[in-house]
Amino acid sequence: MTATAIPQQAPDLREPKGWRSTKNRTMTILMVVSFVLVIIPLGFVLFTVIAKGASIISWQFLTGSPIPPNVLPAGIGGMWPAVLGTLLITGLATLMAVPLGVLGAIYLNEYGGKNWLAALIGFMSDVMTGVPSIVMGLFIFSIWVLHFGYSGLAGAFALGCLMLPVVIRSSYEILRLVPDSLREGSYALGATKARVTMTVVLPAALGGIVSGALLAIARAAGETAPLLFTILTVTEANPDVFNGANTSLPSQIFSNASQPYTGAQDRGWGAALTLIAICFILMIVARFVTARFTRYSR
């Protein structure tokens, strides 16, 4: 019963048989290739949008009004109605969805505990993030637009429905990270749960909540489908978000994209660049907020 068949002289400790290392290396290369496969289209899209949009963007483009008919070339009128619409409608949707979403997350984390209702709400909230945005548009159309007509408000409702589960999930994750010791310190002084939540937990979670909300806003700002049947797509600026049809950057891009006229297409690229810039800025601010303001809840 001697030792196993390894030669007594200096053992061969080099790379294992060719095919094993080759397979390992090939797989690693494939993984890198997958990443490259993703960078290429992303790069293309960004490059095209920037290249084609940059020549259109100007102060006139962003603030001019109204949106000209499709046949007209770029340089006449501007996209202000769409910019205004995006700001107003997304802003209104944020005002509705974020507080409600945070409250919902507070229910799940602070009050719900392990009971079946909280589990159901949490689960269905995640499921709701998968509901197609067009269904949200049809929903608001059915219960609101048919009775009260098109308006920025209707669009805000639809966007709000999209944002709500996203805000709930991201806020919940942040609230969960707030250490119990913070809460207990406040309870020990005789505070009620509401007070503890408002004065201790929320401030500690604020950075993460804001960051999550910003990302939800970025997603909502880019949505088109929910707005199709709720705000229509008009060419005049409508600052009254509660009455009358409106428009938005994504709506305009959508309607311009299928136009054969170069003027319309150019305006589409300009609007696309504006929209991407807005989403991009929101994303960067969100990352910044996460980096600077979430240290206490980690």
Binding site: G222, P250, W269
Partner: peptide, 21 residues
């Protein structure tokens, strides 16, 4: 970061680039 960037491109911009380019 790149993956996040990919996620933030709105679907209408994908569509615009898709049909025109």
């Amino acid at each position: 970061y790149v993956i996040d960037l990919l996620a933030v491109v709105p679907s209408v911009v994908w569509g615009l680039w898709g049909i025109l380019v």
